Amino acid sequence: MTDQQAEARSYLSEEMIAEFKAAFDMFDADGGGDISVKELGTVMRMLGQTPTKEELDAIIEEVDEDGSGTIDFEEFLVMMVRQ
């Protein structure tokens, strides 16, 4: 866990972390443990947004600390705390 990830967790109660985990699992449609650009786009479109591929890439790049091209749960928490 990076310093950013530990800091993000410090702002959240266990209840909030559990709620974010449920949301993360909804995004992680294939159950792979991370959110891909495609999965992020699908959920955002379900919520009425129309992000471009470039916008989706930028969202993932902003929090993808390990350079995997996807968002894992710890990175997702950082993203949610920043919102």
Rank of each mutant, 00 (worst) to 15 (best):
M1I: 15
M1Y: 11
T2M: 11
D3T: 09
D3I: 13
D3L: 13
D3R: 11
D3S: 09
Q4E: 14
Q4M: 11
Q4V: 12
Q4D: 04
Q5M: 13
A6H: 09
A6W: 08
E7A: 08
A8G: 08
R9G: 06
Y11A: 12
Y11Q: 10
Y11T: 12
L12W: 09
L12N: 02
S13E: 02
S13F: 00
E14R: 07
E14G: 05
E14H: 08
E14M: 07
E14F: 11
E15S: 05
M16Q: 12
M16H: 14
M16N: 03
I17C: 07
A18P: 01
A18V: 07
A18G: 13
A18W: 03
E19T: 08
E19M: 03
E19C: 04
E19W: 02
F20Y: 15
F20N: 01
K21G: 02
K21H: 15
K21W: 01
K21P: 00
K21S: 02
A22M: 04
A22V: 15
A23E: 03
A23H: 15
F24I: 02
F24N: 01
D25F: 04
D25S: 07
D25I: 04
M26K: 13
F27H: 05
F27W: 11
F27E: 04
F27C: 13
D28N: 05
D28I: 13
D28A: 09
A29W: 05
A29Q: 12
A29G: 10
D30P: 03
D30H: 13
G31P: 02
G31C: 11
G31S: 04
G32R: 11
G32A: 14
G33P: 02
G33N: 02
I35W: 00
I35S: 00
I35E: 00
I35M: 03
S36M: 10
S36A: 13
V37W: 03
V37K: 03
K38S: 15
L40C: 06
G41E: 13
G41T: 05
T42Y: 07
T42N: 10
T42D: 15
V43K: 01
M44Q: 02
R45S: 08
M46Q: 09
M46A: 09
M46D: 04
L47F: 06
L47M: 06
G48E: 05
Q49Y: 11
T50K: 12
T50P: 07
T50H: 12
T50C: 15
T50Y: 14
P51K: 10
T52E: 05
T52K: 08
K53Q: 15
K53M: 07
E54Q: 14
E55F: 04
E55I: 12
E55A: 12
L56P: 01
L56R: 01
D57E: 13
D57S: 12
D57A: 13
A58F: 08
A58R: 10
I60G: 06
I60P: 02
E61G: 15
E61S: 09
E62G: 06
V63T: 13
V63R: 07
D64I: 07
D64H: 12
E65F: 14
E65I: 15
D66W: 14
D66M: 05
D66T: 09
G69K: 09
T70Q: 11
T70W: 04
T70A: 11
T70R: 13
I71K: 00
I71G: 00
I71P: 00
I71F: 09
D72E: 08
F73M: 02
F73P: 00
E74A: 04
E75M: 14
F76Y: 01
F76D: 00
F76H: 00
L77H: 01
V78R: 15
V78E: 12
M79S: 11
M79D: 00
M79H: 09
M80A: 09
M80W: 09
M80F: 07
R82M: 09
Q83T: 14
Q83L: 07
Q83C: 13
Q83D: 01
Q83F: 12
